[in-house]
Simulated assay, not measured.
Amino acid sequence: MGAYDQNPVMDGARLAQQRGWDTPEKAVRGGAEFIHSEYLSRDNQHTLYSMRFNPVNPGHHQYATDVMWAYHNARQMAAYYKKMGLEGRFFTRYYYKK
C-alpha cells in the first residue's frame, strides 16, 4: 500500500502520517479499509492468493512482491483457526492451462 521494498518502514510511516493513522487502532482500521476496497470487494481478488498473483490479470494490481506472502499469511491464519477450534469451509481453486 505504501511500504515499498526499497524502504518499507519509512514509506509505511510516511503513509500512516499522511492518512492520520497516529494510533495502532487507526492504522489497523485504515489498512483493513484499504484491503477491503482495493481487493476483497473485487470479484476476482478476494483471496490471499489472488491478491498476490491476480490470476485473472497476472502481473497487474498485485498486493505483495514476496512470492511466499500468501503462503505465510495462510499458515498464520490456519494456526489461528486451529487455536479457536474452527475449520475453514470455503475454498477457491485456480486452474491454469498448460
Results as ranks from 00 to 15, higher is better:
Asp66His: 05
Gln17Arg: 10
Glu38His: 12
Gln18Pro: 07
Val9Cys: 10
Leu86Ile: 06
Ser37Ala: 15
Ala27Tyr: 05
Trp21Ser: 02
Trp69Asn: 00
Met77Lys: 13
Gly31Ala: 02
Met51Lys: 01
His46Glu: 11
Asn57His: 11
His61Leu: 02
Met84Ile: 05
Gly85Glu: 07
Val28Gly: 01
Lys26Tyr: 01
Asp5Ala: 15
Asn7Ser: 11
Ala70Cys: 01
Gln45Thr: 12
Asn44Leu: 06
His46Met: 05
Ser41Lys: 14
Met84Lys: 14
Phe90Tyr: 03
Trp21Asp: 04
Tyr49Thr: 02
Met84Phe: 13
Pro55Phe: 05
Asn54Gln: 06
Tyr95Pro: 00
Gly88Met: 13
Tyr96Phe: 11
Pro55Thr: 04
Ser37Pro: 03
Val9Asn: 10
Asn73Thr: 02
Gly31Tyr: 05
Tyr80Gly: 09
Asn44Ser: 11
His72Asp: 09
Gly30Val: 01
Ser41Glu: 15
Pro8Tyr: 12
His60Leu: 10
Ala3Gln: 07
Arg93Phe: 10
Asp22Cys: 05
Gln62Trp: 02
Gln6Ser: 14
Glu38Asp: 15
Gly85Trp: 04
His46Lys: 12
Asp43Ala: 14
Arg93Thr: 14
Asn73Met: 05
Met10Arg: 13
Arg19Leu: 13
Asp5Met: 14
Leu15Ser: 04
Trp21Ile: 03
Tyr63Val: 09
Tyr63Thr: 01
Thr23Ile: 05
Phe34Val: 07
Asp22Ser: 09
Asp43Thr: 09
Met68Val: 02
Thr47Pro: 00
Trp69Phe: 04
Tyr95Asp: 01
Asp66Asn: 11
Met77Arg: 12
Tyr80Arg: 15
Trp21Asn: 05
Arg89Tyr: 03
Gln62Phe: 03
Met77Asn: 09
Leu15Val: 12
Glu33Asp: 11
Asp43Arg: 09
Glu25Trp: 03
Asn44Trp: 08
Val67Asn: 09
Val9Leu: 12
Ala13Tyr: 02
Gly2Ala: 06
Tyr95Leu: 05
Arg75Asn: 05
Arg19Asn: 13
Phe53Ala: 08
Asp5Cys: 07
Asn7Tyr: 14
Leu15Arg: 07
Tyr96Trp: 07
Tyr95Lys: 00
Thr23Asp: 07
Arg29Cys: 03
Asp66Cys: 01
Val56Ser: 11
